[in-house]
Write a protein that binds this DNA or RNA. Structure first.
Length: 353
DNA sequence: AACGCGGGGTA
DNA sequence: TACCCAGCGTT
């Protein structure tokens, strides 16, 4: 272990790191926390506009705690992994109701909040409080796995443990916030997955993977398995005013808490209408199918437009169902494919004028 | 089409 | 402890 590991990161960070990210302007625990949750599974360039909208709507933890869940999920629409938003909202409520509105200042306390694990807690402690705490996000894993040529996939307990030990050892007491940001920047901008720019890297001189010319062999790859394919139909019910019928999904499971078209593998539009509103639809139009992929399966979606005309006869259960007006979209959470289809409906609506 | 990304939940 | 679950953007 070289003594100058952290100093090399810090010198590089001062010269080449990112210093103008929105969450670096004011590093309060709340702002750092929201940014870290958004940055889980999501790259910086994607996160920036979401972060800015979120902060404009909820400048402080009390604003978030007081917001309706639909608004929180609305601002998360398109980011994915919606459990992050539900946990964020729940944690904000806990901070306000049980902790007097103050975030815990230590890793243990932070980890007691939903959605905060060891790495996210470390990021908040180091960046917001300036205290020594290690992180191990995907970027840092890649940098350390290459630097030490740690074999194996970090998803296994053994490799994960090894990387955490290395991360803890290198984390300095001084300038811990800059070190943390520097490691993430290094992984995100130089030590990238497929084409690392080793000539510019402050660690290249004694990087084990670089010495072997096998940078992209580390970290080891996740064992691949073929994903199952499932299919479903979306019934896009439209009333005479061009509004679409949506139903709120249960809080658990896929797209939890988001709004969706009536959906099912073998839904038949005519049968559905007869069963639900007692008459057949005015018109049915099958749209081109498309595939939406999750981490654990592919979903082949068949969208079917079902025209109900005036007085559709659907009874709304408050908070569970709504007519979505494409001209005045309500602030609700939508999964990406639903948002895309509603966008197309809005386009059609506009073209009719 | 494959890949990568932190954390929660469950057996 | 070892899986399974979750949704995008990038390559």
């Amino acid at each position: 272990m070289p003594q100058d590991f952290a100093p090399r990161i810090l010198t590089w960070f001062d010269q080449h790191g990112r210093h103008d990210l929105p969450w670096q302007r004011d590093t309060s625990p709340y702002r750092v926390w929201v940014s870290e949750i958004m940055l889980q599974q999501t790259q910086v360039t994607t996160v920036i506009p979401f972060y800015q909208r979120f902060m404009a709507a909820f400048p402080g933890v009390a604003d978030l705690a007081a917001a309706p869940q639909d608004q929180v999920l609305h601002l998360w629409t398109g980011l994915g992994y919606y459990a992050r938003a539900r946990n964020l909202h729940q944690a904000a409520r806990q901070v306000c109701e049980q902790l007097g509105g103050e975030f815990p200042a230590d890793v243990e306390g932070l980890m007691a909040l939903p959605g905060i694990g060891r790495s996210t807690a470390g990021a908040i402690v180091s960046i917001a409080h300036g205290e020594r705490a290690a992180i191990l996000d995907g970027n840092v894993k890649r940098v350390l796995a290459r630097y030490h040529a740690v074999p194996g996939w970090p998803g296994t307990t053994a490799v994960h443990k090894t990387l955490w030990e290395i991360a803890e050892r290198y984390t300095p007491a001084e300038r811990c916030a800059d070190y943390t940001q520097g490691m993430m920047d290094l992984g995100a901008t130089l030590c990238t997955r497929s084409s690392p720019q080793c000539p510019r890297c402050p660690l290249a001189a004694d990087c084990a993977a670089h010495a072997m010319g096998r940078e992209t062999d580390f970290p080891g790859k996740k064992p691949k398995k073929t994903l199952p394919v499932r299919r479903t139909r979306f019934l896009m019910l439209r009333d005479g005013d061009g509004r679409a019928w949506l139903e709120k999904r249960p809080p658990q499971g896929i797209w939890g808490g988001l709004w969706c078209f009536p959906e099912g593998e073998d839904l038949d539009p005519t049968h559905w209408c007869l069963d639900t509103i007692g008459r057949a639809p005015d018109a049915i139009e099958t749209w081109p199918g498309f595939r939406h992929s999750f981490s654990h399966y592919h979903l082949d979606i068949e969208p079917i437009l079902v025209e109900l005309g005036n007085s559709p006869g659907l009874v709304m259960e408050a908070n569970r169902q709504l007519w979505y007006n494409v001209r005045q979209p309500p602030a609700i959470g939508l999964a990406a494919p639903i948002a895309g289809l509603l966008q197309q409906l809005a386009h059609q609506d506009l073209a009719k004028e």
